[in-house]
Design a protein around this nucleic acid. Structure first.
Lengths: 222, 222
DNA sequence: ATCTATGTGACATTTTCCTGACAAAAGTAC
DNA sequence: GTACTTTTGTCAGGAAAATGTCACATAGAT
């Protein structure tokens, strides 16, 4: 149930992978070129990146991505047609989290995707003081008591809690929690934050977890 | 009555084990190569894995399997022809749950298989409050009364009950209960949950066992 | 041939989500 | 400090989405 960005120029490969990956329970965003990939990268939880693309090499996109602070923890899985050891190492050292050499089996790809998602904490637990998030169970606990959160509330809280201290604008949150196809107003974020604060017993003026940064956005307190 | 995947390239060994294991009440899936094994692994409850295979070493398959979150609890029993201590240790530390050195006796193998199945709760009984599941007979009891569940109903209930508290999306359930080759709609899961709730005398709004997590999926109550 | 289990589409119901309006608070300029 | 602007918090109702329910088609078993 994560958002995967598939950057691959060959339409047939893309279609095949889209089917398998969505069957594995993921949402698949697609891009045929590096620049298209760059545009859609904002809302991805993981990137599957082909080595060769029509406009520029996948590694180049990878480099750009790693230089951008927003994506430093975004897992990237490279697909390469070359089988030589040298290339593999190069791809990895330049910042990919894993790689696969074509031809590869689809189950293998799915396995690696799962492994990477697990590694970056798309599953597992998040402990933030009195607040504890069980990502597998979609269950949040405050001081040991289970909270009754809706899907959006949980997703929003989990997203913010995953990067404590970092501020996100409403636009960023809409893109990364709601999805890039969502065209909503910024008020929507406020509404959900308010809802969360209510359920977390927070005073908006002295929040334990969800801080407002006037003129900027929200952040999870460190 | 569990599904065992036997990955072994020697046809005569395979046939012998198939006979003994199915006589012991199991369903036996067979694979002659590691890649064939990987394809069929989705529906297995336990894997019997030969050390040497024509395409790649069994351990390699094992590694891949352990990296994949879906199979982290899938028991694997390694068969090895080499008797040296070093190998045994290597196989075990790399993630096998048990091993046997060829030549081994068939009763011994069956015993170990049973032991492993019991350990992961694929055999024996599952007690969850007033609900009791006899996994061998596919029979469920609620407050001592036998329930008349169909195969799918029982499988679904048993799967959810095996991991209480954890949420599963409809896609995950379709894959793990129905099998990965099944191409059905998500509505199907709802239908079976409803059926189960009916037989369990549950109010969907205040379920004793099967909880709905809107926007996410279902889980067995802890 | 009949019966049972299973899967699916249509429809009803419930819950969640989003939005627009307004209130409250914070920041700015005077 | 006051008046004004901008931003955020809050509320409530309707829209949209998700789930529950029912009825039926199909396939497989007895």
């Amino acid at each position: 149930m994560s958002k995967l960005l598939l950057v691959e120029d060959e339409p047939s490969v893309r279609m095949g992978l889209r089917l398998s990956l969505s069957k594995a329970g993921h949402q698949v965003l697609e891009a045929a070129t590096a620049s298209e990939g760059w545009e859609k990268i904002g809302s991805a939880d993981l990137v599957i990146l082909d080595w060769m693309l029509p406009d520029e090499p996948g590694v180049r996109l990878l480099e750009r991505l790693r230089r951008d602070g927003r994506y430093e923890n975004l897992p990237v899985l490279m697909l390469t047609a070359r089988a030589s050891e040298g290339d593999r190492v190069e791809g990895l050292t330049r910042g990919a989290d894993d790689y696969l050499t074509k031809p590869f089996s689809t189950p293998e790809l799915i396995a690696r995707v799962q492994a990477l998602l697990r590694r970056v904490g798309k599953s597992g637990r998040l402990e933030r003081g009195a607040l504890s998030l069980d990502l597998e169970r979609h269950q949040a606990f405050l001081d040991g008591h289970a909270l009754d959160l809706t899907r959006r509330e949980f997703d929003l809280l989990a997203f913010l809690a995953r990067h404590p201290g970092r501020v996100y604008t409403r636009e960023e949150l809409l893109e990364r929690v709601w999805g890039q196809e969502f065209l909503g107003t910024a008020r929507t974020v406020d509404q959900h934050v308010a809802q969360l604060r209510d359920k977390l017993n927070e005073d908006p003026k002295a929040p334990r977890f969800l801080e407002t940064l006037r003129g900027v956005g929200y952040r999870f307190r460190e």
